[in-house]
Design a protein around this nucleic acid. Structure first.
Length: 440
RNA sequence: GCCCAGGUGGUAUAGCCAGGUUAGCAUCGCCGGCUGUCGCCCGGCGGACCCGGGUUCAAAUCCCGGCCUGGGCGCCA
């Protein structure tokens, strides 16, 4: 019960992470989870954890009243407690400061012997960690990932709002699966079949005719059989689309957005970065740009040749990454391997106005200039073996006045992998959904 | 989907190749002790061979199938 008495105590709460020398001698209230107990007999140390971090509380059994003693003896790891005590500088403590506990209340008793121990004394496999994800998230090496994730989303929004973009939301339940490409999930939609959206592409293009600059940050779904460290069934895409712009304009927006995110984390999140053992350097813009043709040439010299017109496979990208460190763009992919809405180049229609943003061998984003002429778009659909009739609603918009426009989609979790140096995308998703994982 | 590796107490592992041990160690949980721990320490107790079939006097160990996990590749407007 969160009664009036407890509420009054909570109003005077100090966070564990804020317990420091300057509070020496002050009475404080702390609320949190029992991270660890070290019982020495007459002396009991508990490490208390809350959202901000951990602090140490010491109890002297001799000096406690009966209710505090009882609470102390029943303490289990991860129980929620309220502690009132005096802050004391303590050179004998590794943190240099501790709370001498005077009262202790167990607010929620945790079951003994949890399935998984967040103190990091024994390691656990990723599979076990994800099965008990809530306990895993409490670890000091995991929680900061998601605090940073929140900061990245804020930075991206701040940046895009600052550039005059309007945030939009497009449907995640769609009626047609005819666009080709990725496999879609089927869902029951009353008495009809519907699909989960794989991207906001067509909607965001249409919306540029109203709002000119739009962006969306949202979940999208791919029903691929992929079994890799960088693919999942449900992911978050950061998508922008801009009217009166071409690929060069939106590439600039993209690299500046990335640099802005880095700067935001460096300025405001040193604590989380250091908890994860990370030091970030803001990448220099503009990023390096190479063309598809140049990349093919480099691969050829390395003896990993590729027929012109083919897309890069994983071995190709890994080989390329040996030549380019950090972020770089690959531009001008063959029109053949790009979707119907990508604009073929005017000088050479077999090359398209397209780009991918890479980090080493990881593809982070892809985008380009879009086809904006109704007749060309219709033609491109037919070339791709798609049926223009299935795209009536979309094509119609191209008769309502469609300026030249461009945009990109950035994989949010892939950016998080790069920022936090994790090699498995599941590490940076709270509850990942992959080919074999549907719970928790 | 294909290829490779693996599945031993709640967790992390040894044992498996060369079949026969009371299945070892750590952590964990419980009980007891300890006034400066910080991966506390010390003593006691508890808890495991993924499932099914086969070979054998005997299977955690060898063989076959399944399920699951990790990694690689493919798929991935």
């Amino acid at each position: 019960m969160f009664d009036e008495k407890l509420k009054r105590e909570f109003a005077k709460r100090v966070l564990a992470g804020e317990i420091n020398d300057s509070l020496d001698g002050k009475h404080v209230n702390v609320f949190g989870w029992v991270h660890e107990v070290r019982d020495l007999g007459k002396l009991v140390f508990i490490v208390l954890r809350d959202v901000s971090g951990v602090c140490q509380v010491v109890f002297r059994r001799d000096e406690l009243d009966e209710s505090a003693l009882k609470a102390l003896n029943s303490l289990s790891n991860e129980s929620v407690v309220f502690v009132h005590g005096v802050v004391a500088k303590q050179p004998k403590s590794r943190l240099g400061v501790e709370i001498v506990g005077e009262t202790l209340k167990v607010l929620s008793q945790a079951a003994p012997r949890l399935e998984y121990d967040p103190t990091e004394k024994v390691s656990a496999s990723l599979d076990v960690r994800l099965k008990h994800r809530i306990l895993d998230l409490r670890r000091q090496k995991v929680k900061p990932i998601f605090i940073l994730g929140s900061a990245v989303l804020k930075a991206l929004r701040d940046f895009l709002y600052g550039r005059g973009f309007i945030e939009v939301r497009t449907p995640k339940i769609i009626g047609s699966a005819t666009e080709g490409g990725a496999e879609l999930f089927e869902v029951k939609y009353f008495d009809r079949v519907a699909y989960l959206a794989q991207s906001p592409q067509l909607y965001k293009e249409q919306l540029t005719t109203v709002f000119e600059k739009v962006f969306e940050i949202g979940p999208f779904f791919r029903a691929e059989q992929s079994h890799t460290r960088r693919h999942i069934s449900e992911f978050t895409s950061v998508d922008i689309e801009q009217a009166f712009a071409d690929m060069d304009d939106v590439m600039k927006t993209l690299e500046e957005a990335i640099a802005y995110v880095y700067q935001h984390l460096v300025n405001n999140h040193q604590k989380e970065l250091s908890m994860l053992g990370l030091t970030l350097k803001v990448p220099k813009t503009p990023f390096k740009r190479i063309t598809y043709d140049e990349a093919v040439g480099i691969l050829e010299k390395d003896g990993i040749s590729l027929k012109w017109g083919e897309d890069f496979g994983t071995p190709h990208l890994r080989a390329l990454a040996k030549h380019f460190h950090g972020f770089y763009f690959i531009t001008g992919f063959p029109t053949e391997i790009k979707p119907f809405y990508i604009q073929p180049s005017a000088e050479n229609p077999s090359i398209s106005e397209s780009f991918d943003l890479m980090y080493q061998w990881l593809e982070l984003a892809s985008g380009g200039t879009r086809v904006n002429e109704h007749s060309v778009l219709r033609e491109r659909l037919i070339q791709k073996g798609l049926d223009p009739k299935q795209f009536e609603d979309h094509l119609k918009v191209f008769e309502y006045g469609m300026p030249v426009h461009a945009g990109w989609g950035l994989g949010f979790e892939r950016l998080m992998m790069v920022l936090t140096r994790h090699t498995n995308i599941r590490e940076v998703i709270v509850f990942p959904r992959d080919r074999f994982r549907l719970t928790p």
